[in-house]
């Protein structure tokens, strides 16, 4: 059986360092298996989050050899094992311990986005009718497992630390799912402009690249939302007509 060396970040908000661990690699193993093996055999207090181990819960986000990924979906045979594999916590959030970061900011942001508000049921049985073609796009957004890797790579958050001003790709996708929901009647465009600062996104598509659910974040969610915001607030013709209407 092959051996691999892992350099795992150990530390807390006050500081830390990479520590090296050698561990056996067996067939089909993913990085999370190796980390848990190290935890079980050599470092019982190595902190990491995980739950489903099948890419469905979005708990085990980390940066593996510098790439933001889910540890449970990163197979060892996709990494070069002749050199040490680094595993570090996400960088856009404060560190709690080792691989565990404080992602509570994300939960606060979500609360600020106006909730789903359906139109009055209009089918004879007191519910609604929706066509599959009308919900395909929303279903794409609702695949999101909230791993926050898109937030992690967004330079507005990662490099410029605009957490107070910008809601990040995850919540633009969340808002898009609500705005494009065929039953929803709420309007979130002003909030997206003023509170979410959607304009900060300059479409570098880093978020789309790292999404483990392959959601087309930039093209399908952010750009259409930007267009809607522009139409509502900056379109000269609409602006002119609105002016006219007021009189």
């Amino acid at each position: 059986m092959a051996k691999a060396t892992f350099k795992i970040w150990r530390g807390n908000s006050e500081g830390g360092e990479f520590k090296s661990y050698d561990t056996e690699i067996s067939e089909g193993m993913v990085v999370l298996d190796a980390v848990l093996q190290i935890q079980g055999e050599q470092a019982g207090d190595l902190a990491c989050r995980w739950n489903c181990k099948a890419g469905k819960c979005g708990s085990c986000s980390a940066e593996i050899n510098g790439n933001p990924k889910l540890m449970c979906m990163t197979r060892m045979n996709t990494l070069p094992v002749d050199e040490p594999i680094t595993v570090e916590p996400m960088k856009a959030f404060p560190l709690k311990k080792d691989l565990v970061t404080d992602v509570s900011w994300n939960y606060e942001v979500k609360k600020r986005i106006k909730k789903f508000k359906p139109r009055t049921p209009d089918a004879p049985d007191g519910t609604w009718r929706m066509q599959q073609t009308d919900i395909d796009r929303v279903q794409e957004f609702r695949k999101c497992i909230e791993c926050f890797l898109c937030q992690d790579v967004c330079h507005v958050l990662r490099d410029h630390h605009k957490h107070e001003e910008f809601i990040g790709p995850r919540f633009l996708v969340y808002a898009a799912a609500l705005e494009m929901h065929p039953l929803d009647t709420e309007n979130r465009l002003k909030d997206l402009k003023d509170d979410g600062n959607i304009g900060y996104c300059n479409i570098t598509k880093c978020c789309t690249k790292v999404c483990p659910e392959n959601i087309t974040i930039t093209d399908n969610a952010i750009i259409p939302l930007k267009e809607r915001v522009v139409d509502e607030f900056y379109d000269p013709i609409t602006k002119f007509l609105k002016l006219f209407r007021k009189k």
Partner: peptide
Amino acid sequence: LEAWGAVFDRTKDGK
């Protein structure tokens, strides 16, 4: 759940 925003797959007649 649908009234709270869940988006289930649909039948041809939209149910």
